[in-house]
């Protein structure tokens, strides 16, 4: 993993349908940072992530990865980041293993088995996603956090539908990732217990 990364957002102005979601939003994150993005429903937390990935265009502002502009050419940022959104990106006709294989064709069976047993879904390897509960489905999506080596994480409400044990497991993984030099952005309405993230409030 790259040891030193910095992501700088300066004066970002996002508008959605005549409504300013954030104006003059600035933030600098470097390796080891955990950033908790707060805001009311509809404050623009998801839109902020989508803007960084180019799914929504900002009115103005700059985003730089290691000093390089990524708003006009996003590939450097996309190649470094892992994004888990509300919609989990799992195919309902696939089994758990097929879904993971789709994202990680090169990861070994042993690694997948280890991560799934960590997440307590080891018995569901060949079960179709549509047969799992909401929390189990989310854990399958979150397994990507253990299998991926991408440094910048964007997690949109990662704790929803999870039980207490899973939440602590996930918080542990986020802390571990930051200690290894990664950057984690996450949104959550629940307070976190194990982590002491930098809190950033989104206000219009």
């Amino acid at each position: 993993m790259q040891s030193n990364i910095s992501l700088t957002i300066s004066d970002l102005w996002i508008e959605r349908g005549d409504r300013d979601l954030c104006k003059g939003f600035s933030l600098t994150a470097t390796s080891g940072d955990i950033i908790h993005i707060l805001g009311d429903n509809g404050a623009g937390k998801s839109s902020l992530f989508k803007t960084l990935f180019g799914l929504v265009s900002p009115v103005e502002g700059e985003v730089q990865l290691n000093g390089e502009d990524v708003l006009s050419y996003r590939d450097p940022l996309l190649k470094q980041s892992l994004y888990i959104s509300h919609a989990l990106g799992l195919k309902s006709v696939f089994t758990v293993l097929e879904n993971i294989r789709w994202y990680f064709p090169k990861v070994s069976e042993a690694d997948i088995a280890r991560v799934l047993s960590l997440l307590k879904i080891e018995g569901y390897l060949d079960v179709p996603i549509k047969a799992l509960s909401a929390g189990q489905t989310r854990r399958v999506a979150l397994a990507r956090l253990w299998l991926s080596d991408l440094p910048v994480w964007f997690l949109d409400e990662p704790f929803s539908a999870l039980d207490m044990v899973s939440i602590q497991l996930l918080e542990g993984r986020i802390r571990e990732h930051a200690e290894q030099g990664g950057i984690v952005f996450f949104t959550s309405h629940q307070p976190v217990t194990l982590l002491s993230p930098r809190r950033v409030e989104l206000t219009a």
């Binding site: 990935f53 590939d75 996309l78 190649k79 919609a87 989990l88 990106g89 799992l90 195919k91």
Partner: peptide
Amino acid sequence: KEDYADGSLEQLLVSG
């Protein structure tokens, strides 16, 4: 349609 509904379309767009 299905890619759009289950979020994998979004994942494709941000996959790099």
